[in-house]
């Protein structure tokens, strides 16, 4: 069981001693019970940090934002930045370091173990509470304790309302860390990894297409999935054919060579192109934080696509995304015994 005081003390201590220039964590949000990401820079702000089942955001995104701000201001900080990281946050931080987005010594990882549970799925919770509005949520062993608007408390088994990604979590413990709070309960199995994926794959080819056609038709191309994804740190996305980052170094040739692989219009074909491209580009990089799926306003089950790639990587290529800073990326490496039977 993680003591919130330990998180706050750690953050305060590090800021006081000047060991880090900021701490990325969660604080109580302004909407209901939900936490929100926060970057604190002063010791006294440490008391605003929270740790509860609504800490679903992948904070490594804010490491990316921090790096972009540095590039923009052309300033190189001398101190590292600290991040409070769940298992998934830590894994995506590893991928970012694998891709040289920042060095290991630029980041101080305060790991928090999800222990027996994980974060809440607000849709599931709303159903379970039958419309009652919670104002706070807390971990309590294998349960969540929710404070409702009328001040009453309600105890729910966490697994009933937990996010799917947490139920299927492969690694709820942040292995890469400078300091870790909470117990390592890796190996717990609430649901088998890739269980939803396996269920989906029972469908026939026609059913699968009907399903995805429905999804691709609904995508409004708001790019929330891309914006929330720590791996989508490129300044210009390959699927964008409108924006073009023009810097003094950009040559006329480069401008001319923009490729319109996919149009921006939200047609089925172009949405297919967008989501397929995203899945391919996240293969071996996505660590299943599930944020894309959580933020999708039209509820496209994006994790299925990314899970599919992740499971292929694990099962066919023995590749575990986010496991090692020094590893070659999935698609830049190969083994002699990679699958060959599909080739004529």
């Amino acid at each position: 069981m993680i003591n919130l005081k330990d998180i706050r003390d750690t953050a305060r201590d590090m800021l006081t001693k000047g060991e880090v220039r900021a701490v990325i964590g969660w604080q109580q949000g302004s909407r209901g019970m939900a936490a929100e990401p926060v970057v604190i820079t002063a010791p006294e702000q440490a008391d605003s940090l929270v740790w509860n089942p609504t800490c679903y955001h992948n904070l490594s995104l804010y490491l990316v934002n921090d790096k972009k701000a540095q590039a923009h201001s052309k300033q190189k900080p001398t101190l590292p930045i600290a991040i409070i990281a769940k298992g998934c946050d830590a894994r995506s931080t590893v991928v970012l370091m694998q891709e040289n987005y920042f060095r290991r010594d630029e980041v101080y990882i305060i790991g928090v173990s999800c222990e027996g549970t994980g974060v809440v799925d607000e849709h599931k919770l709303a159903v379970a509470l039958q419309g009652a509005q919670p104002t706070a949520a807390a971990f309590e062993g294998e349960d969540y304790v929710l404070t409702l608007a009328d001040g009453s408390e309600k105890r729910l088994s966490a697994r009933e309302v937990m996010a799917d990604r947490c139920l299927e979590c492969r690694e709820p413990f942040p292995k890469e860390n400078n300091l870790v709070l909470g117990e390592d309960k890796t190996g717990r199995s609430l649901e088998a990894p890739f269980a939803a994926l396996a269920r989906f794959e029972q469908k026939s080819e026609a059913e699968r297409w009907d399903f995805w056609k429905h999804q691709f038709e609904r995508c409004i191309r708001c790019f929330a999935c891309r914006s929330v994804c720590p791996m989508c740190f490129c300044d210009e996305c390959v699927v964008d054919s409108i924006e073009m980052k023009v810097v003094p170094a950009t040559t006329a040739q480069e401008k001319a060579d923009r490729v319109r692989w996919i149009e921006r219009s939200a047609t089925t074909a172009d949405n297919f192109g967008y989501h397929m491209t995203r899945a391919m580009h996240l293969a071996g990089r996505c660590i299943d934080c599930g944020e894309c799926e959580r933020v999708c306003p039209v509820n496209i089950p994006l994790r299925l696509l990314n899970n599919k790639m992740e499971r292929e990587a694990r099962e066919r290529f023995g590749y575990e995304p986010g496991a090692s800073i020094g590893a070659s990326s999935l698609v830049a490496s190969f083994r002699d015994d990679d699958p060959n039977a599909f080739i004529r």
């Binding site: 794959e201 080819e205 026609a206 059913e207 699968r208 297409w209 009907d210 399903f211 995805w212 056609k213 297919f272 397929m276 899945a279 391919m280 293969a283 299925l304 696509l305 599919k308 790639m309 292929e312 066919r316 290529f317 999935l330 698609v331 830049a332 490496s333 190969f334 002699d336 990679d338 699958p339 060959n340 599909f342 080739i343 004529r344």
Partner: peptide, 26 residues
């Protein structure tokens, strides 16, 4: 070898979303 790995993923992904497997061949 690099192609085999990447295109295996492409093939799997296409089949996954319900594109006929015979549409892509290596």
């Amino acid at each position: 070898y690099l192609a085999r790995r990447k295109l295996h993923l492409v093939k799997e992904l296409l089949e996954f979303v319900g594109i006929e497997p015979n549409r892509f061949r290596m």
